[in-house]
Nucleic acid binder design. Sequence first.
DNA 1: CGCGATTTGTGCACGTCTTCACAAGCGCCT
DNA 2: AGGCGCTTGTGAAGACGTGCACAAATCGCG
Lengths: 256, 256
Amino acid sequence: MSQHRHPGAPGRAGAVPALPDLPEATVARLPEYLRALHNLADSGHETVSSEGLSAAAGVNSAKLRKDLSHLGSYGTRGVGYDVALLIEQIEYVLGLTQRRAVALVGVGNLGHALAGYDGFASRGFRIAALLDADPSRVGEVINGLVVRHVDDLPTVAAEESLAIGVIATPAAAAQQVADQLVAVGVTSILNFAPCVLSVPEGVDVRKVDLAIELQILSFHEHRKASLTALPATGGSALTALPGGFAATDTQEAIGT
Amino acid sequence: MSQHRHPGAPGRAGAVPALPDLPEATVARLPEYLRALHNLADSGHETVSSEGLSAAAGVNSAKLRKDLSHLGSYGTRGVGYDVALLIEQIEYVLGLTQRRAVALVGVGNLGHALAGYDGFASRGFRIAALLDADPSRVGEVINGLVVRHVDDLPTVAAEESLAIGVIATPAAAAQQVADQLVAVGVTSILNFAPCVLSVPEGVDVRKVDLAIELQILSFHEHRKASLTALPATGGSALTALPGGFAATDTQEAIGT
DNA sequence: CGCGATTTGTGCACGTCTTCACAAGCGCCT
DNA sequence: AGGCGCTTGTGAAGACGTGCACAAATCGCG
């Protein structure tokens, strides 16, 4: 590693000291590390080794060290990482030093649950507005927030600085909602509707599809079934595969 | 391509004609293709080109063709893919020819929403049981199903052939529930609790963490902000990055 | 019957991610 | 002060995933 990140950086609010450009795979793991670190801090640990933290986060320790090295982090050889410092660093990189306002559109089954989900508040986000297109839902109070009509988005955006929108509508409505969100300046969207959104350049979309996750599991079930069905007989080019299919996002068989 | 899949395979129930071992990245995209194909079928299309299908699924067309070639699929050069046949093939590979029974543990905020989610039923799954550890919740009827106590799992498993479990409990309870699921023979788990599960070998775990998704978006927000903050000034090794960070799971800027 | 338009299937090169293995650095104990 | 054990940070190699570009195959039409 060449130039170190300025040590004081995370503490200073408002300053923008040039984020390192992290590999996307690393970014996706940082929140996991952060959660594990908070657990460690709560249980009184002041330092943690890469071995310990990687176990708590469910990843390889070398991977963890490389990830942390990307953000120029300060571990101490022979000792480990300072838990509090690392939390501060990761929260800074993830942009969690400011609590971000999120607009949630679609207060159906899933939207209701999201509106009441503690995890958002406890991890750096604040639901700033609940919106729905159905007039009969407008005015309903959920978790202390009044549901407003989705056409009020411009008003909401004027009150708050919205950067992130969550879409929890049926698929048919999702694209239109996305357009409305983009129109009021939202540049990041989390989409729970089972459809592809098209958005202008510079807007990030992440998708979560619950049924897809199950279908992926179903594939592995099917595969396991077909493997046990033929003990070692089948003449196909399908031999045992001992540790078999290690998946990208899937943890399989983590020993205790 | 060498050996073709036996043409009749998908139709024959019970037969297990040796699944090809697909790259995990391909498996993760198949459900997306499947959804797009169902849409196409509903709107009357009988065939579709790789170009058309890839646009509907939001991926590169070469990637789509390679994915489909892995499962030995039958496209016709000069014409495209037969929509109905492709649906049949993908559903077969994903193991969706039988409707799989799913046990849902944890009927809190999120569990409630999942219990009522149509997407499961419409895409090959059936919620076979709702379970919770809280006695005051047991007996409640949600969407036509009675909530049973989690300790009844052995009974439930005896009634139904459970292969997939969904955990929607608080993090503190998740590991214990996972153990109970594994004990009754569940070999695939979808975990919504923000924690790492340890399970014996041969059990697949997939994790969905809503807050993590937001934190990843937050990073990109932070990054975008830091880029626009320094127009082209900063002396750092951080130059413009035109099309910048193309993400793995993230779709950015798909033109219409 | 042959030709051109079209679209699939895939070889190849490139970039990204993962993992091993080890040198460099730090603290503690004697 | 010096040495020893532990842990980080990283070079290098390999596995994996992606996308271009083109040959092979099919259909329709003259």
